[in-house]
Design a protein around this nucleic acid. Sequence first.
DNA 1: CGCAGGTTTGAATGTCGTCAAACCAAGTGG
DNA 2: CCACTTGGTTTGACGACATTCAAACCTGCG
Lengths: 238, 238
Amino acid sequence: MTIKALNDVEIPQVCRSCSARHDGMCASLTPAELGVLATHTRHTHHRPGEALAIESDEITSYANVTDGVVKLSRVLRDGRQQLVGLQFAPDLMGRLFGTESPITAEAASEVDLCRVPKLVLETLVAGSNELKRRLLDQSLQELDEAREWMVTLGRKTAAERVASLLLLVASRTAGGSEASPVSFELPLGRGDMADFLGLTIETVSRQISKLRNEGLVTIENHRHVTVPDLAALRRRAG
Amino acid sequence: MTIKALNDVEIPQVCRSCSARHDGMCASLTPAELGVLATHTRHTHHRPGEALAIESDEITSYANVTDGVVKLSRVLRDGRQQLVGLQFAPDLMGRLFGTESPITAEAASEVDLCRVPKLVLETLVAGSNELKRRLLDQSLQELDEAREWMVTLGRKTAAERVASLLLLVASRTAGGSEASPVSFELPLGRGDMADFLGLTIETVSRQISKLRNEGLVTIENHRHVTVPDLAALRRRAG
DNA sequence: CGCAGGTTTGAATGTCGTCAAACCAAGTGG
DNA sequence: CCACTTGGTTTGACGACATTCAAACCTGCG
C-alpha cells in the first residue's frame, strides 16, 4: 500500500459510527484524509477481561477507544501485577514506531474500539504535521499522567490512593465537570483497583468503607459512586 | 528571530565542547543546522542541589545533559516529595510545546548542561522530520521508564526497590555493559534515593546493609558501589 | 433454592515508618 | 594538633499501617 493509493480514495466519507469520538486522531485531518481513514477502520467490541493485544504484538494496529475503559498492565516474573495506565474514550491506543516494552492491554469494561492498520496510520502521520504534533502531545500527556501516578504510588497512604483513583475516574467519565455532586460507574473491580493502586483487594475495600464512613462518597451495588463534594475528596487525596 | 535568520549562519561550526555528548539532539541535523545550533548554545555548570528551572518556567530553554545527573521531582502540598525521573548524559531535557505540569528539575550531582533557547530548537524541529521523530522517541522512552518505575513503586519490596535503583544507575553510568563485576559512583544521596523509591532514608540504609550482607554488593564511602554479579542483583530486583 | 464470584469484615502477622541515638568523615577554629 | 561542629549515614526500639489468612456476606443467576 502506497501513499498514492491511499490518496486515491474518491469520496471523503467520515467514519460514521464513531467519528464523534475520534478527537484523538481525526481532528487534525483534511476531509480527504478522513476519507482514507474511514475506508480502513474496523470496529470491534470486547468483553471485560478480554486481551486486546495492541502492544508487544508484531502484527499490530492502532485504535481509538470509542467506549469503555482499557487497562494497561505490566507483570513481574513471579506474577505480581501493576496497572500502569487506563485509557478512556476517546484516547488513541498503540504506539507509532514503538520500541517494544512488555505492556499488555485488556478490556476493563465493555469496550468498543475503532481500529486502524498500522501502515495506514503511519502513512497519514507522515503527511500531516498536525497529526505528528498530536501524537507527541498525547505521549507527553501520558508521561505526565504516569509521573503523577508515581507520586500516588510512592508517597500516598492507602486512603489517599483510593481517593485519587475515584477522582481520576470521575474526571474522565463524568465529563470533567467540576460541579458537585458527581455520580459515575466504576469501570474497575476491586482487584483491578488494587493492581492500579499498589495495594491488596482487602485494603482497597477497607479504605472505600472508610471514605464512605467519612461521608466523602456514597456507593451502591459496589460500583455506582456518588461524590457529594469533589473538593473535599480532592483534599483527602493528598 | 526568524527561520531565515537562523539559516543565514555562514559557517557550519559544530558545538565543539560537547558535540560528542549531543546524540539526543544533533545526530539528525544537517551541517548547516548544526552550525545554527552551535552559535546559539550556552554551556552552564551546576552544583548539587541547584534548581535548574527547566520545566514550569515561562522563559524556558532546552538542554542536553552533557555530564552528571539531573533529578525530576514532584511534591505534594504537605511537602511529601517523589522523584519521577533521572536524566543522565546525554539526555535531552525540557519539553517542546509543553503542557505545564509542576515538575521541578534539580542537579543531583555536579552537572554540565548545553542549553538551547526554546525558539531556536523549535525552529529547527519545524524543519526536520528526523528531529521530530527523535523527540517522539525520547518521550516514548521516558514513558516506558516511568511505567517501569510504577511497577517498582507499586509492587516491589524495599530491598527489591533498592536493587532496582542500583541496576538503573549501573546501566546508565557504567556504559550499559552487561559484564560483571561492575563498579560505579552513586549520584544520589540516601535522601534522594528514598524519594525516588518511595521509602524513608532509614529504610534505604537498612536495605543497602542487607544487600551488602547478602553479598550482592560491596560499598565504600557510602557512594562507591561494586556489583560482583549483575544477574544475581537483577534476580534480587524482582 | 443454592451455587459462584466478587466484596466486606475480622484477627493476627509483618514490613516499613517514626523517633532517637550513635557513628563517621570532612571542615573549622582555637 | 586536637576539640568541636556539621551533614550525612547507620543502627536500634517501638509503633502504625498494610498484608495475610480466614470467614461471612451480598448479588446475580442457573
